[in-house]
Design a protein around this nucleic acid. Sequence first.
RNA 1: GCUCGGAUGGUGGAAUCGGUAGACACGAGGGACUUAAAAUCCCUUGGCUAUUGCAGCUGUGCGGGUUCAAGUCCCGCUCCGAGUACCA
Length: 1008
Amino acid sequence: MEYNFREIEKKWHQRWVENKTYQVTEDESKKKYYVLNMFPYPSGAGLHVGHPLGYIASDIYARYKRLQGYNVLNPMGYDSYGLPAEQYAIQTGQHPAITTVNNINRYREQLDKIGFSFDWNREVRTCEPEYYHWTQWAFQKMFHSYYCNQKKQARPIDELTKAFSTSGTEGLDIACSEELSFTADEWKAMSEKQQQETLMNYRIAYLGETMVNWCPQLGTVLANDEVVDGVSERGGYPVIQKKMRQWCLRVSAYAQRLLDGLENIDWTDSLKETQRNWIGRSEGTEVQFHIKKDATRDQSDSKDISFTIFTTRADTMFGVTFMVLAPESELVSQVVTPKQKAEVEAYLEATKKRTERERIADRRVTGVFTGAYAINPMTGEEVPVWVSDYVLAGYGTGAIMAVPAHDSRDYAFAKHFGLEIRPLIEGCDVSEESFDAKEGIMKNSPRLTNEDGTPILDENGNPKKPYCNLNLNGLTVKEAIATTKQFVKEHSLGRVKINFRLRDAIFSRQRYWGEPFPVYYKEGMPYMIDEDCLPLELPEVTKFLPTETGEPPLGHATKWAWDTVNKKVTENSKIDNQTIFPIELNTMPGFAGSSAYYLRYMDPHNREELVSEKADHYWQNVDLYVGGTEHATGHLIYSRFWNKFLFDLGVSVKEEPFQKLVNQGMIQGRSNFVYRYYSWKTINGTKEVIPTNLFVSKSIADGISKGKYNAEQLGALCRESQANLSEELFANQGVNEIHVDVNIVTNDVLDIEAFKNWRPEYNQAEFLLEDGKYICGWAVEKMSKSMYNVVNPDMIVEKYGADTLRMYEMFLGPVEQSKPWDTNGIDGVHRFIKKLWGLFYSRTGEFLPKEEEATKEELKAIHKLIKKVGEDIENFSYNTSVSAFMICVNELTQLKCNKKTVLENLIILLAPFAPHISEELWEALGHNTSVCDAKWPVFNEAYLKEDTVKYTVSFNGKARFTLDFPADVDNATIESTVMNHEASQKYIDGRTPKKVIIVPKKIVNIVL
RNA sequence: GCUCGGAUGGUGGAAUCGGUAGACACGAGGGACUUAAAAUCCCUUGGCUAUUGCAGCUGUGCGGGUUCAAGUCCCGCUCCGAGUACCA
């Protein structure tokens, strides 16, 4: 019987869908296992073009777990190539919808191509809200919550308003503002609008006036992780800083918990590290500096101006020689002296114009003196206050104390403007660069002597006395930091503070495709529409672009107002601001919907709740999440934040959403080149290229580039290949490297006929071959259309089948490693599948498996495999599993094994890797249930027991030969046997061994 | 700059605890079957020397070290990849 893989695969695929073979069971007494694939497809290559590495890897694990007896939820399961996860999931009822609107839209073209029937204008809106209902719901909950530092969780905002109304605001430790700037009486005196405005400072979802990354070309704001090198991640358009009123999520409130949570989850260290860096916790000290009073300043001299700086190097307080404010800091206008005012304002104007990208591109040292002086609380010294854009407004307090001796940025600034550099560490040299390392012994603190050791004198000519009783001299940097911290705290000069780099997430987008905010505006303040009115569905619009007045696309909608009486959306024309109000025009970003989608899969048809308590308690969290590292600072942070919030609410039982995370590597492109021969001549001193129709094979091209051929030799090559090229073109040789479609190249051999048809201009091409073939050059590049290296796995599936593709992608190497897509080895895997088939069917179509007792060798072969595959799957080392299968099938073929018991075990083991052929052969073995309901075989050590053990005999560490010993041999026997062995004599050479080392079951080493 | 990975044949990659480096494949070379091709099967395949036979040397990016024994551990480099960046 011929193995017609494609027919078999289609048949099984159909059956799985019809019988809902891989659906979860209702039996909740079973252990659960939840596998999920990260929502977007790898590396943006698109639905059908990208390689389903992650799907295959997670699907193998899910099937393995199922065979182990688990109830497995695998909503994005990849059951065969040719059926994308979404379609499968919808058909089997496991998927509530397709992640988010944004994602649907992104894959629209590809989904259309494979016949995914969708009325894009209507169904997207009528189908999606079932899902985004719960995104809107969570958003409203965030709006109605604040973060309580003391309780380390989100709490209802009502608690806060109650506290404000009484005097009991003390003890409220709120993430966003630890000091309340108003009293209970003031609160009560506020208007409703003022109260609402105040509450915005505390809500977890809040409207914030923040600097945003605005992308004019895209007409929308972008999150920090969507901006790469100062340009938008999608499209690469410039991004500028702009102050806008936007919805924000107070992710920063969860910074510490996001950091702590990393301890207990099973992610790769590098990914955890990336998140740690992104969260950027830094422990330091906040110190208050006062501005020296100056009569010439605008503000009355009586007013005391002070500001706080943040530093991790409190030990360097004695080395402060100037202060720097961020240009955006409000302090600048307060401290500037009239004399410096014009200059400072000019500088502020200039920096505003520079985009972030320009600031990154050229790191010029710029800045301007404000005319003000700050008083160092440790030394009493007056140091100048500058403004410079190297200080960021968004981090710390937007002001720094500059210690040029021990900070490279301050150093560059000081050198540029000729400011003092005062080293504080014994023996450090700061003549060329600053000494940034946190090591060494402190000196100069306080600084009482000059460089030559003579005492510094005060105004009266007496030796200067220390300004405060803090002396760090002789301490290490670490000790000095701790001592200074303590000192600052005790003397109320500041406080110990922990800063995070992590910023709040900007949650508005000026797009159409996204969840609409269930928010209407009354007197400019946002109000949530009632929870029972959710979901608020996207309105019909005529255009998806921003309006002429620069409003978001929803500004085109004519029916986008909220009727608070009838509780429904109504025409804009009816807005009276009494009972009918305008609705928010922004929509939510892509990460909104993906942040909690895993919870929804646990209970996809629930109309009452995001997830039922029962389902949540059963499924808990995702056991295995497979996806790319590119989401480390985006989705994987937002999702953890979102889940922690839901955890605080009691909706999610687990604080961390993804217990184990496996990163699949990216599939890179492998480009092929052809080499087009050209000649050239010099006309009027310029080199002129004469192109030809001649394409030369790789090694000839290399030869030409290296000048290996003279005109005669090349001519001979041409005659040999019967290529017509006129004589004069043989001199002045050169080749152009041209990308060629990888789909017309096999094992780097060009399909010449296909090449001629590929492009009309190559119709008349001639070739210089090597060994009768045209060998192409190759390089690893990213997959892109322009490099003609995009490979569509569909072609592989049609030619070799989905099972071969699955196994081949796994065989390429470790899952987490990026690798070029290279079909050169696929024949090997396909051969393996055919060999496997050969164990079941003879060439004449006879069914071979028989009910016979397996031999010792056969049992050994299969149990070796059981052990290996089990271990490998647990370690996600799928490539070595595939090779183990090959070894086993080779052995069984050699043994001519057709024992049913052996083959049954083999098929079960193979089922996760090659599900189609496994189902087919499982059925052939006489089973009428799916192989996915079989039991994973139990490994029995006894079958691997050997009577004899092979020892490697080595002399002075060099392995020479091997010897077999009985398994229970004692060391003395080994030693005497080896010493007396004929082969040993040559190496011993009459000497007496100094030492004999015997490692049981492994090696014997004789030291001479 | 900082952080984290990595470097093994012509290629992808094995070597899980320090114990015969190169499993398993691809490619290449040779052979069998065939009128021929495809398919299939068998042999060889890190390099160098030797080859009638045995064999010897060398070899995991570079330089040191620890050890009876190092791809694996330690120290110092080089190169490549990823992340991040005026974060005070």
